[in-house]
């Protein structure tokens, strides 16, 4: 069997922020009635994470669970654990109407790091990324230039960006242009005074 490869095999780029394709990352889509207690307990058993509230992301060790829509969450686990976690979720949810799919190979993930990371994303997404309105614990699904994407903060100066694998090269190139040296706007640093 062939070895799994991430979309851009860990390509990196340095500009006003550091961009890195994260590599293989396990991602599992879970759809169902999120108010059902079975779903919250299945997620807690499989990942240790709490069920995230509206537009939130919860973390536990290397696992994360993010809110995606009123009836959907995305479960992030290490790539080699994705199959087992998906199977575990599926077997825990046989009694409720739910869908569990391992979508690890259908997505790409990027890391954006540096004091200007907010600006780089702010150039591409119609989202207020000022520290007052966007911080850790929030996930935002939106438009990144011309494609759908989602992102959240892993520290005060770093983001994780998730997109469809088919547009990974586009997202990387677009982020690279938004992060080209000398292109700082200083919007959020001004706002901070």
């Amino acid at each position: 069997m062939s070895e799994p490869q991430s979309a851009l095999t860990g390509t990196t780029c340095d500009g006003i922020a550091k961009i890195r394709e994260v590599g293989l990352q396990g991602m599992i889509t879970l759809r169902g009635d999120l108010s059902a207690t079975e779903i919250a307990s299945a997620i807690a058993d499989a990942t240790g994470c709490a069920l995230p509230a509206l537009r939130e992301i919860t973390h536990e060790g290397r696992n994360s669970v993010s809110w995606m829509s009123p009836d959907e969450v995305m479960v992030f686990v290490p790539y080699d654990e994705a199959e087992a976690t998906a199977a575990k979720l599926e077997s825990a949810l046989t009694q409720v109407h739910a869908l569990v799919v391992n979508v690890s190979d259908a997505r790409a993930m990027f890391e954006l790091e540096g004091p200007n990371a907010r600006e780089v994303l702010g150039k591409l997404c119609p989202v207020d990324l000022s520290p007052d309105s966007f911080g850790q614990g929030i996930i935002r699904r939106t438009r990144l230039a011309q494609v759908p994407a989602a992102f959240w903060m892993t520290s005060d100066a770093s983001f994780r960006v998730v997109c469809f694998r088919s547009v990974a090269q586009y997202v990387f190139d677009t982020l690279k242009i938004a992060a080209q040296p000398g292109s700082e706007v200083g919007l959020y640093t001004q706002a901070n005074g």
């Binding site: 509206l54 537009r55 829509s69 009123p70 119609p126 935002r140 699904r141 939106t142 438009r143």
Partner: peptide, 12 residues
């Protein structure tokens, strides 16, 4: 009204 996001029309 579902996710409470207030955004400009290109997101919709």
């Amino acid at each position: 009204p579902y996710c409470g996001v207030k955004a400009e029309e290109t997101e919709f």
